[in-house]
């Protein structure tokens, strides 16, 4: 306590008072000039010290929080590139379809019809129709980014693909998740806590839109394993869920519908 008292009541270096008293005794003014060379040099030294310390802290920063911020920046940047290329691809596909349609006007009517049907079946063309929207969102409340182990209140990729599986089982004709149309090549995966669909990170709430029979899809889904699963997610883990029937849902076409290694069987190599 004495130490703290001492600090609080006499914070000023006692030498100041002592030397002032000495000068007064010698008949001089109690204080010296502020602008002496000594003071100025010390001031420069202190300024330098402050700047150097601040500079070294700033330079060290990227090793801690900065790396994550940097990574997030890079991801956002590249995700923008991906979005931009997706849009360009969609535009090119449309141009090609237009050119084809013009050239095939007479000869390939059956081919055009076949392509249109295949577009729906593969998920490469945008479709609309009645259906169901299942929405899943993490349990509200702060999450600890450094928490280890499984956070039960977070939606996992497994939750999403089980719901999707239930929707296909209930007769859905086309499905997209947060604007990512599902094709035969669409993985629903995770990277840690992030969910990736079609190799793009998507963020909650996860909206799974399915087009299908408006009279049967809601009922069949409610009876399916997927429907029961959605209910248990909200009952047991506090995940915010909703299942809504809608008259008009539009789903975008998938961006990437190509194959690199598979060839038609029977056509030779």
């Amino acid at each position: 306590m004495t130490l703290i008292n001492e600090m609080l009541t006499r914070p000023l270096d006692p030498s100041y008072a002592a030397s002032a008293a000495r000068r007064v005794a010698a008949g001089e003014p109690p204080h010296t000039s502020v602008g002496t060379v000594l003071v100025t040099l010390t001031a420069i030294l202190i300024g330098l010290l402050l700047a150097v310390a601040a500079g070294s802290v700033r330079r060290d920063a990227p090793t801690a929080q900065g790396v994550r911020a940097e990574l997030i920046d890079q991801i956002t940047e590249r995700r923008d590139v991906v979005e931009e290329r997706s849009r360009a691809i969609a535009a090119r596909q449309q141009e090609i379809a237009g050119l084809e349609a013009a050239s095939l006007a007479g000869a390939g009517a059956s081919l055009t019809a076949r392509l249109q049907r295949l577009g729906i079946d593969t998920g490469s063309s945008a479709v609309e129709g009645p259906g169901l929207i299942v929405s899943l969102a993490d349990r509200p409340g702060p999450a600890d980014p450094e928490a280890t182990g499984v956070d039960q209140g977070k939606v996992l990729s497994r939750d999403v693909f089980i719901v999707v599986n239930g929707l296909w089982q209930s007769g859905a004709e086309a499905i997209s998740i947060n604007g990512q149309r599902l094709t035969v090549r669409s993985p629903i995966r995770f990277a840690g806590a992030a969910i990736l669909v079609n190799f793009r990170p998507i963020s909650p709430p996860y909206e799974i839109s399915a087009i299908g029979d408006p009279d049967q899809l809601p009922e069949l889904f409610a009876q399916s394993v997927g429907g029961a699963y959605v209910k248990s997610l909200s009952d047991n883990f506090g995940i915010v869920t909703s299942v809504t029937a809608k008259d008009d849902i539009s789903l975008p076409g998938a961006t990437r519908v190509s194959i690199d290694r598979a060839r038609p069987l029977g056509n030779g190599s």
């Binding site: 000023l12 270096d13 100041y16 030397s19 010296t32 502020v34 000594l38 003071v39």
Partner: peptide, 20 residues
Amino acid sequence: GAVRAVLDGIFDDKVFVVSF
């Protein structure tokens, strides 16, 4: 400390440097 000593009217350049 130095600023306060100036305002108290008892500033001393040598004390400032030495205390720093």
